[in-house]
Amino acid sequence: MIGMRRRKQAVAERGRSPDRTEGPGLKVEDLTLYFRSTAGVVQAVEGVSFELVRGRSLTIIGESGCGKTSLARAILRLLPKNVHTYRGRVFLNGVDVMKFGDERFRKDVRWTRMSMVSQAAMNALTPVVKVGYQVAEPLMLDHVGKKEAYRKAREVFNLVGVPEAFMDRYAFELSGGMRQRAILAMALITDPDIVILDEPTSALDVLTQANIMNTLKKIKQDLGLSFMLITHDIATSSELADEGICMYAGQLVEHSDGQRFYREPLHPYSQKLMASVPTLHIEKKPEFIPGQPPSLINPPTGCRFAARCHRRFERCDEEPPLFEHGEETVKCWLYETG
């Protein structure tokens, strides 16, 4: 493991350029991703900016279709064919990797530094190849010898809590939880700094889910890597998130520390969303948010949440920028400074 980290460190040094920012971690600036569709241009991700310090974990929440998966794809440059616009900057440990050509990005960034467990990936394991091979494969593509790749695969199997004996099995012989762990092993084998998890447990049982969250916490502690957890399940997100991003209609509306995010979110939308989360142990009746998010083809000018907002005022007809509020950032006129 340590050896690999050094190897990648070297890659990062080589990639050193005038575009460096300060500390290690991820910094996203004005990231935008639009898709072409028959009905028009879908503004799936619009001007998203945030920073994540190495070793911290982040959750991205928001209603279905608000652009969570698209944001992850934009960061990892996993783009479909119908991209209309793709711009912004992505700094990884200070290096602007948006400047990298596709080949270099694939070799030095995707999987090696940042990997992803896709939504519904569990069902994407090939049924005809043994699980051990599938997990080791990304390393072999990375020119690591077969023997070394298998040694490393055994290591990550242990890390994610899959018995080594399962390496010789096929995906269909594994339970859902074990399959999800194997997928996680695949995302970890290259020893990345950042692992994006897109709805990793939503298809699983409560107990299996809780077990996997335990494993993720342990990995986070032991390896000091950053997880970016994309999920609908806000209660579960709190198990892993040191900080949270709330998205609405393609835009980042709030980025806060966990304490604030779950206790006293700033943005009116985050407040409503948190209030809609049912709680089991705390007696509190959840409330729903009337109305629906706007279309991303013709989003409203001004604040995109205005039509559903309980605190709207005149200013809101204009689009709010991202305001800083202490350590937090929030896209809402209520926090206008100066």
Binding site: A210, T236, S238, Y262, R263, M274, L280, H281
Partner: peptide, 13 residues
């Protein structure tokens, strides 16, 4: 089962 179900609390981390 009940113990496994989280509420959205920052302490869970």
């Amino acid at each position: 089962l009940l113990n496994a179900i989280p509420d959205p609390e920052p302490e869970n981390v």
